[in-house]
């Protein structure tokens, strides 16, 4: 029973991180129908930069803020340089370009920093806590993970529901041509969307790196879990990203805990297959018919 509880708690923490990745993917997919396969690699690069900042002697939080800022900038730049020229082309081109960018970034990271693993600190203790006299596997850091991702979700919600900027961004995502006819400038908003998405990816990376250690490909698996979560929740639903993230995190935790950790990536694939068979549009997809 305690084992089950601990696995569940671990699954929740992982699920929140996965949800952040999924949210990043969903933000971009909604606006441009592109899945940014390079999101994980972009976050990986940014984490290396945070690592460098950290080793300059700055504290954890300065590095944290620097990473998020770099992520925003990186996302915006990527959109302007790589994605904008693809507008109006087949979505296949965008997939190939983001995938190629993933490879390129991993190669560059390997060339600069080598493939050895580095440890990245956590801001809070990663040791499980005693509640009464049972030891539970939920550390202060896990609490931080959950709160950080919740904060991200709430920020996004406020942005999209409560501000004019968010209203414009939603209009661009749902109906770009109509948005233009209402005087909305589409391009800068798409750039902003990529920036926010990249920042969500960076947050996920910073939350996962203390437990996984820093290498050029440490985000690969997290990215495919994020993709899983996004598919389970519906690729265009931010709420779905959160629920899909938790569902994915928990399923993987149970598979890993009871059957073996090496099965997790394949379990994620199975989850995608099953959810596409049962509910192709995703749990939280909007009811509108698909765009053709």
């Amino acid at each position: 029973m305690q084992f089950f509880l601990n696995i569940t708690l671990g699954g929740i923490a992982t699920g929140m991180i996965v949800a952040a990745v999924a949210l990043g993917l969903v933000l971009i997919f909604r606006a441009t129908n592109i899945v940014n396969f390079a999101q994980g690699a972009m976050a990986m690069m940014t984490t290396y930069i945070a690592y460098a900042v950290l080793h300059q002697g700055s504290g954890y939080w300065l590095a944290f803020v620097a990473a998020l800022a770099t992520g925003l900038l990186f996302g915006a730049l990527t959109q302007v340089v790589l994605i904008r020229p693809l507008q109006g082309k087949s979505p296949l081109n965008a997939i190939i370009v983001t995938f190629g960018f993933l490879i390129f970034l991993e190669g560059v990271a390997g060339a600069i920093w080598g493939s050895q693993t580095r440890t990245y600190p956590a801001p809070f203790s990663e040791a499980g806590q005693k509640i009464g006299n049972t030891q539970i596997a939920f550390s202060p850091f896990d609490v931080f993970v959950v709160l950080a991702v919740l904060a991200l979700m709430i920020l996004m919600l406020v942005l999209f529901r409560g501000t004019d900027l968010g209203l414009r961004m939603r209009a661009v995502a749902f109906a770009p041509e109509t948005a233009r006819l209402l005087g909305v400038r589409v391009r800068p908003l798409l750039t902003l969307g990529w920036a926010l998405s990249a920042a969500a990816g960076v947050l996920a990376a910073l939350l996962v790196v203390p437990t996984s250690s820093l290498t050029p490909n440490f985000m690969d698996v997290i990215l495919i879990y994020g993709f899983t979560a996004a598919v389970v929740g519906g690729l265009d639903s931010p709420v779905g990203a959160l629920v899909g993230g938790l569902a994915t995190g928990l399923s993987l935790a149970y598979v890993g805990g009871y059957l073996g950790g090496s099965l997790e990536p394949m379990a994620a694939l199975a989850l995608v297959i099953v959810s596409l068979m049962i509910r192709p549009e995703g749990l939280f997809a909007r009811p509108a018919p698909r765009r053709v």
Binding site: F29, F37, L235
Partner: peptide, 14 residues
């Protein structure tokens, strides 16, 4: 069952 990047993501997972 859906258009879009599903195949790409799933093959990457494989």
């Amino acid at each position: 069952r859906l258009r879009g990047p599903y195949l790409a993501g799933m093959t990457l997972m494989v």
